[in-house]
Design a protein around this nucleic acid. Structure first.
Length: 257
DNA sequence: AATTGACCCAACCGCATCCTC
DNA sequence: GGAGGATGCGGTTGGGTCAAT
């Protein structure tokens, strides 16, 4: 069957955007707002694919973008969120106002990966390099473990405080290097021994449901992180789907990320 | 000064997901 | 419930910049 192309490729520009194209796109969105990317290029007089326009706006032209280097605090937030979420760059970006998923993805691949490797941590599993456990299943346990020490980045700590990572005992270490200290404390899942005996692996993310939040309903991850619309959460109840809520169903018992 | 290689980032591509009919 | 279109996401790549040789 095949999918129809998103645009007429023969009549679209590709490659770097010119200043004039940027100006046209910004002017159009200022006048008409975002939305309907497919028809936007034609309406704005741009010989570009709608996807390309969206990407350019989201990653470069949006007025609320924060330019410049990432701070150490942002580094730590990214690392910790990556430990929980994996390569869900858009979700991670949602917790870093002014940063885009593309920017974070690039930053991860060029800086943070190296930083973690220098610390002796596998950037994919967030576990010590070279250990047999690094390639073993049960990664989620250590993503949770990393959370238990999320205290060095105040902004994340605020969010982390709302995460329902239930632990039957306090963290084994008070080290501020959560990923390293926690990952070294785990056991092997395939050995029959609990990998992290002190961990409850129920990763249902979020605070205890509020009275007005039916637990059986899917909820916005931002909501479960305790971030309501207006701060880090950009979700809008009035526009589900495109630009609106991103739903994350609570995990069933025994279900893992 | 020229060349080379590493690094970085903007942009593209294909697939997944959501939404509407 | 299924088909098709629109949008979003993540992986990958192309090309510019800069330091080392």
């Amino acid at each position: 069957m095949g999918r129809s192309p998103c645009c007429e490729k023969a009549h679209t520009n590709k490659g770097a955007w010119t200043k004039e194209e940027d100006e046209r796109l910004v002017a159009y969105i200022r006048a008409h707002g975002e939305g309907c990317w497919r028809s936007l290029p034609k309406a704005a007089g741009l010989l570009r694919c709608g996807k390309s326009c969206r990407l350019r706006w989201m990653n470069y032209l949006r007025p609320d973008l924060k330019r410049g280097n990432f701070t150490d605090e942002e580094d730590e937030i990214i690392i910790r969120l990556h430990a929980i979420l994996g390569n869900k760059w858009s979700l991670i970006a949602g917790q870093l106002p002014g940063r885009t998923d593309n920017e974070i993805k690039n930053y991860w691949n060029t800086h943070i990966k190296r930083k973690l490797l220098a610390r002796g941590i596998d950037p994919q599993t967030h576990r010590p390099l070279g250990s047999a456990e690094a390639a073993a299943p049960g990664v989620v346990a250590h993503r949770a473990a990393a959370l238990l020490h999320a205290t060095t980045a105040p902004a994340l700590a605020a969010a982390a405080a709302t995460l329902a990572v239930k632990s039957s005992s306090p963290p084994a270490s008070s080290s501020d290097d959560g990923a390293r200290s926690s990952t070294s404390s785990g056991g092997g899942a395939s050995t029959g021994e609990p990998r992290c005996p002190d961990l409850n692996l129920d990763l249902s993310v979020g605070p205890p449901p509020a009275a007005d939040t039916p637990t059986s309903q899917p909820v916005c991850l931002c909501y479960r992180l305790g971030l309501r619309a207006g701060e880090a959460c950009g979700c809008r109840a009035d526009k589900p789907g495109a630009g609106g809520f991103r739903y994350f169903r609570p995990l069933e018992q025994g279900q893992y990320i």
